[in-house]
């Protein structure tokens, strides 16, 4: 297992994947709330201006207009920052999108701390929990640029509401990625025997770094990437963690209601202990870099390694 040094900006990958989808399928339309240059839905605006709808800084209307478009057979991709598309427009997502199973794809950009400079108002640490709690919603959190493409492909294949979480920061290409064909099922990125790290988003790369940290301590980590938070593919995940002494979850999100909670829900009847790496029920703040915030809030390879050590010693 080695991490390639190659990285890509996931929102650019996303924008190209969306454009490819728009070229392939006339039903694809894009809506944005004055952030198309950040979410990269601007690529659709440039090539298909009639299929791009600038909805102004009015996310609630945007989400419901998207639902209306879907009711005419269109496949709307509705964009804003993660916090706004899931938080500001929560009730429109629930009533107008999820309840009627509208074929709307919600794309939340700049999740977690990746909009580091703008501070707590723009950072999104609750969006996955919010979306996961809504019936009929699929929640996808790609672990690398290839999975960003797979998430767009899967979203198109699903006839119903999907939320895709896209980071603003560069992401490494993982040695193994999950695929749209598998519905982004959990995938072992690096095998190991002692402790399983179940991670999503940028935390998968950190889990691989934790594995390297522990290699000469005699603790073997199995790194499992879970790009589909909902459905979680719980049975498959349980099988993958069997044989390990414990599970560490790692997510760039509050530990309340996100990946850690979801994994705990399926492991409730298991004898395996679980530790969570994530944000501890607090808001973020501004910083000069994403990395500074990840360090400050304990979303590091060291933090994963420390939890894994605890479990390995039990």
């Amino acid at each position: 297992m080695t991490l390639t040094q190659q990285k890509a900006c996931p929102r650019e990958t996303y924008g190209r994947a969306l454009l490819a989808a728009a070229r392939q399928d006339q039903r694809v339309v894009a809506l944005d709330a004055d952030l198309s240059g950040s979410t990269m839905s601007c690529l659709v605006r440039q090539e298909f201006p009639e299929r791009f709808f600038e909805m102004g800084i009015a996310e609630q209307n945007m989400v419901a207009v998207g639902a209306g478009l879907s009711l005419t057979g269109k496949i709307p991709f509705v964009h804003s920052f993660s916090m706004f598309v899931t938080g500001r427009a929560f009730e429109q997502v629930r009533q107008s999108v999820a309840l009627p199973k509208a074929n709307v794809k919600l794309v939340g950009s700049s999740y977690g701390f990746s909009d580091f400079g703008d501070g707590a108002t723009h950072q999104s640490l609750e969006d996955a929990a919010i979306m996961r709690s809504i019936p009929n919603m699929t929640v996808l959190i790609p672990g690398d640029p290839k999975e960003v493409e797979a998430a767009v492909a899967l979203a198109l294949a699903i006839e119903g509401p999907v939320y895709i979480r896209i980071s603003r920061s560069e992401m490494a290409f993982l040695p193994v990625s999950s695929t749209a064909d598998s519905a982004l099922a959990p995938v072992v990125v690096a095998d190991g025997t002692d402790v399983a790290v179940v991670a999503n988003g940028i935390m998968v790369e950190r889990a691989l770094q934790a594995k390297a940290l522990l290699a000469n301590e005699g603790v073997s980590l199995k790194v499992i990437n879970v790009p589909s938070l909902k459905p979680l593919h719980g049975a498959a995940l349980l099988e993958l963690v069997q044989g390990c002494r414990g599970v560490v979850t790692a997510e760039e999100h509050t530990v309340m209601g996100g990946l850690g909670s979801a994994v705990l829900e399926v492991m409730a009847a298991q004898p395996l202990p679980l530790e969570m790496v994530g944000v501890q029920d607090c808001f973020g703040q501004s910083a000069w870099s994403h990395e500074e915030l990840l360090q400050h809030y304990g979303l590091t390879s060291e933090a994963i390694a420390e939890k894994a050590r605890l479990l390995a010693r039990r």
């Binding site: 009639e50 207009v65 639902a67 209306g68 478009l69 879907s70 005419t72 269109k74 429109q92 309840l99």
Partner: peptide
């Protein structure tokens, strides 16, 4: 029934989406 409504304030947006979809078609 064309849409799920009753959480007030959302129907006009839904209707606008339908008009924009019809225009494309």
């Amino acid at each position: 029934i064309e849409a799920n409504t009753g959480s007030l304030g959302q129907g006009l947006s839904l209707g606008l989406g339908m008009v924009l979809g019809g225009r494309l078609d």
